[in-house]
Amino acid sequence: MRLSGEGGDARAYYELHGTLAAPRHATALDKPVGQWLTNIRRPGGLGKDPVRARRRAQALAAIDPDWNPGENGWTVDWQRHYAYLAQLLAEGGRLTAIVPGVTRHGEDVGRWYATQRRDWNPLSDEQRERLGELGVKAAVRARKTSAKSPVAPTSGRGAAAFQTGVAALAQYLGRERGGMPGRGHVERLPDGGEHRTGVWIANQKPRRDRLDREQLAALADLGVDWAK
């Protein structure tokens, strides 16, 4: 891996998108910069020489301090949408106008923003703090009525549980850099809770046909082979 060459592609991508949280299919200067960034975020991806690996990480951090969101405990997908939301607001957009269907670089930032407000509690303290700096707050939940369908809250809990699992896995990989956790591994979350990350990742494979494209992409970005 030659950081000098791919680093130029990464810088070109950042200049266009304002983030290095690129999806795997992303290109810059006709080069597969998204796949390259995905590879180097994986355990050992920066090389076996610790001095050289540290130098490469510093070069990427000079472009984007959040180039490896797993070290913060969240996914590349989350970081990318957060960056795009911040950009929309910096350009004069208002949170009230960022609704599902509002996109940036092909990403539905409005839908993501609504999801963060709805699934506020499972977010880490730092995620909530970063969103709060943009003026984002948890959604005010409407009172349940007998006429309300139970599908929405069930779906919301499922989405929140998946996000928590991905964040726990990203946290583990960012720390251990030694492959997937064993089935018995329990990850301690930033809020002090515990997550059975080993069991969770093992349970995702049998139900992969029920995962949506974004969920599969989040797992693939973390190096889960069967999600690619």
Rank of each mutant, 00 (worst) to 15 (best):
H185K: 15
S149W: 03
A147Y: 10
G184S: 13
G198S: 03
A202I: 10
V151E: 08
P181M: 02
D191E: 07
A161M: 09
D191V: 03
E194H: 15
G179D: 03
E187I: 00
K144Q: 13
Q163L: 07
G156V: 09
D212V: 07
Q171L: 12
T154P: 02
A160N: 03
V199D: 10
R183C: 06
P206C: 01
S146F: 15
K137I: 07
K144G: 12
K137L: 12
Y172E: 02
K205S: 11
D209M: 10
I201D: 05
W200R: 05
R208Q: 13
V186G: 03
E187P: 01
P181G: 01
K137E: 13
T197Q: 09
D209E: 13
T145A: 08
Q163E: 12
M180R: 15
Y172M: 04
R188P: 05
R175F: 04
P190S: 09
G192H: 04
V166F: 04
G192D: 04
A138R: 15
K144Y: 09
A160S: 02
P190M: 07
R183S: 09
R141L: 10
V199H: 13
M180T: 04
D191Y: 01
P181E: 02
V166G: 00
A167F: 07
G192Y: 02
R143I: 09
E176C: 12
L189G: 08
A142T: 14
V140F: 15
S149Q: 04
A168M: 12
G198Y: 05
K148M: 14
G178E: 11
G158E: 09
R207P: 02
S149E: 00
Y172C: 01
A139C: 04
P181V: 08
D209P: 08
A202K: 14
S146K: 14
F162L: 07
P153Q: 03
R188K: 14
K205Q: 15
G179M: 05
P150G: 02
E187K: 04
A139V: 06
G156I: 08
G192S: 01
I201W: 07
G135A: 12
H185Y: 09
T197A: 08
Q204S: 06
A202Y: 14
M180N: 07
E194C: 09
R177N: 12
V140E: 12
R210Q: 14
F162D: 00
G174S: 00
V199Q: 12
A161P: 06
R208Y: 07
L189I: 02
I201C: 02
R175M: 05
R208I: 11
M180V: 09
H195F: 15
Q171E: 08
V136N: 02
P181W: 00
G178A: 13
P153L: 06
P190A: 14
S146C: 09
P150W: 02
E187L: 04
K148L: 12
K205W: 10
L211N: 03
A142R: 15
G198K: 04
P181Q: 03
R141H: 05
V186N: 03
L173M: 00
G174E: 00
L169E: 01
W200I: 00
